[in-house]
Design a protein around this nucleic acid. Sequence first.
DNA 1: TTTCATAAAGATACCGGTAACATCATGGGC
DNA 2: GCCCATGATGTTACCGGTATCTTTATGAAA
Lengths: 358, 358
Amino acid sequence: MRPKKSTKVIAPRTKLKDARRSVTMAEIARLCGTTKMTVSRVFAGRPGVSEALREKVLKQATRLKYEVNQQASSFSSNRVNFIGLVTPFEGLLGSRYFQRVVEGLNRGLGNHPHDLVLFDMLSPNFESGDKLERVWRQRKVDGFVILAPHTTDQFIRPLAESGVPLVVVGEVDPGHGVASITADDEQGVRMAIEHLAGYGHKLIAYVGGPEMLSSAQRRLASYRETMENVGLEVKESMVMPGNYTMRSGREAGAKLFRAKRRPTAVFAANDDMALGVMQAAMAEGLRVPEDVSVVGFDDLAEAAEYWPALTTVHQPIRRIGLVASNLLLAQIVSDFQAPQPPPLDCNLVVRDSTAPLE
Amino acid sequence: MRPKKSTKVIAPRTKLKDARRSVTMAEIARLCGTTKMTVSRVFAGRPGVSEALREKVLKQATRLKYEVNQQASSFSSNRVNFIGLVTPFEGLLGSRYFQRVVEGLNRGLGNHPHDLVLFDMLSPNFESGDKLERVWRQRKVDGFVILAPHTTDQFIRPLAESGVPLVVVGEVDPGHGVASITADDEQGVRMAIEHLAGYGHKLIAYVGGPEMLSSAQRRLASYRETMENVGLEVKESMVMPGNYTMRSGREAGAKLFRAKRRPTAVFAANDDMALGVMQAAMAEGLRVPEDVSVVGFDDLAEAAEYWPALTTVHQPIRRIGLVASNLLLAQIVSDFQAPQPPPLDCNLVVRDSTAPLE
DNA sequence: TTTCATAAAGATACCGGTAACATCATGGGC
DNA sequence: GCCCATGATGTTACCGGTATCTTTATGAAA
């Protein structure tokens, strides 16, 4: 039973332009007198190839500078070896924090073939809220690492519900089963406040971060709790809002230092704001640390380089990145949801911006 | 002539796990009573489909939340819609400079389906020098944007010679036909020096960047030239080395301000170092701008936020990113090497760190 | 009415790998 | 010597699109 159409002879597709042409497994196989299936086994590191043949294949491959075509490989195995790195808010992309996380992620990726794809939610071409889900549907990535979301972020839930491999760096509402990794902010803040209290400071001001960030919420809560635990009173006029920028720190500092009763120590919920507070102190003619002690949070590169060098809470950001990629790879490669890791310990780095109260 | 083997019946591959299963063009086609070829035409925006059918296809696609499988599409069309973003030296990834470039790139990418893949050459898994060429061979990207390389960078040449689409942000040795885009550093420095000279400063110090960076070389050359043009002498003891970090700026500033004849103005080759110079001034008890004027270069976010706000040369970084992506897309999409664009104009932003000499 | 250019839609092969299964050679255990 | 387990290797059928060519429908020109 022949098809009703006459037989056709269709010319093979025109060849790719030379720049894009490349060696294929079939070619290597031909040179080695075998088939591409065997070559495929060699490169995938699967068993079932004799040592002699394997070496022959590798030799030819090296000679021809062969590299496995990831495109074709992905297509066949349905894995693309890209991980989406999502930066959902202003200022993240260009920060040392970002840099450290990337370092950690790359370390965790290790020998895996995955690379990081940048998705900056602030870019104009990302305005549509379902961008990430579309990217997933398009098979551009195998999963996402989402940096420090707002607790209320709406775009995480639909992703998670679609079964997209996902790790959040920061804290998310527990319960909907999203993997996440965070530092132990509470503990970090506690150490900072206890350090200041131990130096005899009584009036310890607080400069906070954006309210919608979970990290900011946790740090503030821990400040209040620790103050109470060490027997100090929290004066509401000493609790200043901020938004994690140097400017907001400087403005908060200016208000604090102009108050009729000024604090002898200030804890800022991140380093940038702490630097701003120090600037405000200088502008008001106060010396750090003689007149006022300042402590930050994060221990980014700037903190150590500043003058005076900032006493701050060191967050193991690189390690967080490393753990994040491990959690994600577990989901992608082994389809295995690792148990939620505990928050990672912070520690206090005492530099030159704090001193005992005289 | 039948093959010598008996006919075989091989079971179809097991289906993908549900999470990864998805609607295909064939499915949409079936629902619309047509073939996947037509559906393909619709999504590629190619002509040859009646309006009625096109709408029908789009309607079904929307209903099923269909997205074209980029993996398969890339495979077939031999374009992967990823662009490699290469950061070849320390500190770039976490800088505002990086952030701005990315903003510009994303803007330039516009509606193109390309996304950015991060290649941080400092990551341990990138130690091998031919990483980029391998990535290219693996068909993971369609081309590269390389940020501010050393002029001597060896890894650019082999890439360019292999015909890899490539744009360098910064200056490269002309002649080997690598597309590049840069700001007019010379002009920027000229404006800064003329500004200070116009304020009556005679002893204008210079704090430079790493010698192997082309931007640093050009800025220094322009400093010398402009000083001569405005009739001022360059004292070699007033030309300090630096490496674009705040710390190096502070150290350079400390030396300058402790010299027996100290400068009344300092130009630093980037903002971070300028901030360091201001810190050094304060540490030595000098006021900015009353005792010493300071000018930076780049106009990153910190410059405006600092106190006192920094007078600096504004570099159109975002625009540079935008031009870079346009240049690259031209090569990728149209196989067209656009003519080398001229350096983009800088302009001077006068803030609070400079004042006339009394 | 016939011819032919043009637009719409279909048919086929193919991109370069991988999954699943088939086959074959080898050698040990009986 | 025969059977079967085992490991090496080959065969086939895809993955889900796109390039290219063919066929069919439509309508204007002759």
